[in-house]
Amino acid sequence: MLDQQTQLCAELSSVRDFIRYGASEFNRAGLYFGHGTDNAWDEAVQLVCAAISLTGFDNPAILEARLTHSEKLAVLDYFVRRIEKRMPAAYITRHARFCGLDFYVDERVLVPRSPIAELIEQNFAPWLLDAPEYILDLCTGSGCIGIACAYQFPDAQVALSDISADALAVAERNVAEHDLSYRVKTVQSDLFAGLAGQCFDLIVSNPPYVDEEDLAAMPAEFQAEPEIGLGSGADGLAFTRRLLSEVPNYLNDGGLLVVEVGNSAAALVEAFPDLPFTWVEFERGGHGVFVLTREQLVAG
Rank of each mutant, 00 (worst) to 15 (best):
Q188W: 02
A216T: 08
E225L: 13
A234Y: 11
A220I: 02
I203H: 02
F222K: 04
A238K: 07
A169M: 11
A220P: 01
A169K: 08
D211I: 05
K185S: 14
R241N: 13
V184M: 03
A171F: 09
D235I: 11
N174I: 07
E213I: 14
Q198P: 03
A217I: 00
I203K: 01
F239D: 01
G236S: 02
G231V: 10
F239E: 01
D179Y: 09
S189P: 10
A217L: 12
A217D: 12
E221W: 00
E212V: 15
A220G: 00
V170N: 07
R183K: 07
P226F: 11
M218D: 02
A176T: 13
L230M: 14
Y209H: 13
L230D: 10
E172P: 03
D211K: 03
L168K: 03
V175Y: 04
A216Y: 04
P208H: 04
Y182G: 02
A238T: 14
D211V: 05
A217V: 01
E227K: 11
L191N: 04
P208Q: 05
L191V: 13
V170D: 06
S232I: 08
A169I: 12
D179L: 11
L202I: 08
L215K: 00
Y209S: 14
E213L: 11
Q198C: 09
Q198L: 15
E227I: 08
T186R: 06
L215N: 10
E177T: 01
D190M: 00
G231P: 00
R241C: 13
I228G: 13
F200Y: 15
T186C: 15
T240A: 11
L215M: 10
P219T: 03
G194P: 07
S189A: 09
V187N: 12
D214F: 00
V170R: 11
T186E: 06
R173N: 07
G229V: 02
G236P: 03
E177L: 06
G233N: 07
A176D: 09
C199H: 08
V204P: 08
A196V: 15
R241E: 14
D211T: 08
P219Q: 05
F222P: 01
H178L: 10
P219V: 05
S232R: 03
K185A: 15
A217K: 11
A176P: 00
L202E: 06
E213K: 14
A224D: 05
E177K: 05
S189F: 13
S189T: 15
A234R: 15
D211H: 04
S181H: 10
P226W: 12
S205F: 01
L180V: 12
Q223S: 15
A196P: 00
A171N: 07
N174W: 06
I228S: 10
L195F: 06
R183L: 07
P207D: 09
V187K: 13
L195A: 02
L195R: 04
P207M: 06
G229S: 14
A171T: 08
G236A: 04
A176G: 05
V210D: 02
G229A: 15
A171Q: 05
V175M: 04
H178N: 09
P219H: 07
H178D: 08
S205E: 02
L191R: 12
H178R: 06
S205A: 13
D179C: 12
I203T: 03
V175N: 02
Y182I: 03
E172L: 10
A216P: 01
G231E: 05
V184W: 08
Q188D: 00
Y182H: 14
Y182T: 10
G233Y: 03
A224C: 15
G229M: 06
S181G: 13
E225T: 13
E177C: 04
